[in-house]
Simulated assay, not measured.
Amino acid sequence: MKTDIVLAGVGGQGILSIASILGEAALRDNLYLKQAETHGMSQRGGAVVSHVRISDDAVASDLIPVGTADIILSVEPMEALRYLPFLKEDGYIVTNTTPFKNIPNYPNEEEILAELKKQPRCIAIDADAIASEIGNRRASNMVMLGAATPFIQITPEKIEAGIQRVFSKKGEDVVNLNLEAFRAGRNFALANK
């Protein structure tokens, strides 16, 4: 078993929280894990990418080679397009459809989504709208994580335990909100894959 995931978005969208939760879940499942990240966190809205490699065998490198990622999980559609070269031929794109317009000449949203949907395995989800319906738009990253779980070889229960661990310091209400967002994203992906 091996799953290579490119997490992409911009600063403030919760990419590092997703990476932490996946790491927690992998360790709970006694799997090997390597992670590397680059981020513009000193500037909200700066590009953030994290490579997460999970396997039942030792992982030699923390970086995912171009053309080998099993999943591109993007909380922002332009960032999914940016990392498309990393996706392997039978890989999955799981992307939020809501753009984060952090540059003045942000490309046409419809053209970005059309390009992404040319891929045979693309889940495009309005995670911001789903998270808002649940009660907090900031939980859109957990909607996205949930939408990716059908393609990650870790049980949803282990990922939920990771969510509980990562958000436990923020209180039970925050944990429950994030679990609800996670489940909503998972249900969307299962219904649309």
Rank of each mutant, 00 (worst) to 15 (best):
T68L: 13
V52I: 14
G67Y: 13
R28N: 10
K34F: 00
S55H: 03
G45W: 09
I72L: 14
V52H: 01
E79D: 05
Y32K: 04
G45E: 08
G46D: 12
E37W: 02
D57E: 14
A25P: 10
P85Y: 07
R28E: 09
I64P: 10
G91S: 06
Y92T: 09
L73F: 05
N30D: 14
G45Y: 07
Y92L: 00
Q35R: 10
Q35H: 05
L73C: 11
V66C: 12
R28S: 11
V66A: 12
F100C: 08
I54V: 14
E89N: 11
S50W: 03
M41A: 13
L87M: 04
R44H: 10
E76H: 09
V52E: 07
I93R: 02
L63G: 03
E76F: 13
E79W: 07
R53C: 12
Q43P: 02
S42G: 12
L84Q: 08
G23H: 02
D70E: 11
T95D: 06
V49F: 08
A60Y: 08
E76C: 06
T68N: 07
Q35V: 00
F86P: 04
A80D: 05
H51Y: 09
S61N: 13
A60I: 10
M41I: 14
V49C: 05
P77I: 13
F100L: 15
R44A: 11
V75Q: 02
D29P: 01
M41K: 09
P99D: 05
I64M: 05
G46Y: 12
I72Q: 02
L84C: 09
F100N: 12
E89L: 07
D70A: 04
K34G: 00
V75Y: 01
S74M: 05
S55N: 14
M78V: 11
A69F: 12
A26T: 11
E24I: 05
A80R: 03
Y83H: 09
A36F: 00
M41R: 12
L33G: 05
V48L: 09
I64T: 01
N30I: 09
G46S: 08
R28V: 01
S55V: 02
L27S: 06
E89H: 10
Y92K: 00
Q35S: 12
V59E: 03
A36E: 01
A60R: 04
D56P: 10
I64V: 13
L73V: 07
D62S: 15
A60H: 05
K88I: 10
A47I: 13
A26S: 14
T68E: 15
V59Y: 01
R44K: 14
S74K: 02
G40I: 13
E79Q: 09
M78T: 03
L84E: 07
S55F: 03
A36H: 02
R53L: 08
Y92P: 00
E79R: 03
L31T: 02
V75R: 01
L27Q: 08
R53H: 09
K34Q: 15
H39P: 07
S50E: 02
K34T: 04
T68P: 05
S74V: 13
G40E: 12
G40P: 08
S74Y: 06
D70I: 00
M41S: 12
L81S: 06
S74L: 05
I64D: 03
S61P: 01
I54P: 01
